[in-house]
Amino acid sequence: MIRIQREDFSVDAVIQALKQQGMGAIVTFTGIARGESRDGKPVRAVEWDVYETMALRAFAKIREDSIHRFGLIDAAIVHRYGRQEPGENLVLIAAASSHRQEAFDACQFMMNEIKRSAPLWKKEILDDGEERWIGE
């Protein structure tokens, strides 16, 4: 499952969609909008820009690479775009396998690869009105 969407997602629904016979573990990672910036300033909201078609291709490749690399049975990546306030869901990674260790490792791998290579950009909107793109 690969999705880029504006609306919120349900972690439970993604887990249910992944479940199949032979699985012994589903590890999920949920990224949440932080209420504080790296330098300690209060954040009012974050906004994501995305090159959607290219990001979907990047997600598909990351998912397939992780399935092969860690011997997963299935994997899911769901990423939101648009605007989120602190506490809202941003991204969900799920790795399903026979045993837990490879699922933990695959979650870490997928999240790192998304942050390294997927064309998604996060802007922080601070309480004082300042806006800044992160990573640029």
Partner: peptide, 29 residues
């Protein structure tokens, strides 16, 4: 990126190509 593939700047372009300007991604935080 040309037609959704990262590309170097010496690549020749063709009619109808899409050239995306990709700023550094938010990565690694």
């Amino acid at each position: 990126a040309v037609n959704e593939e990262y590309s170097d700047r010496n690549r020749s372009l063709r009619e109808g190509d899409t050239v995306a300007l990709i700023p550094p991604v938010s990565g690694g935080k």
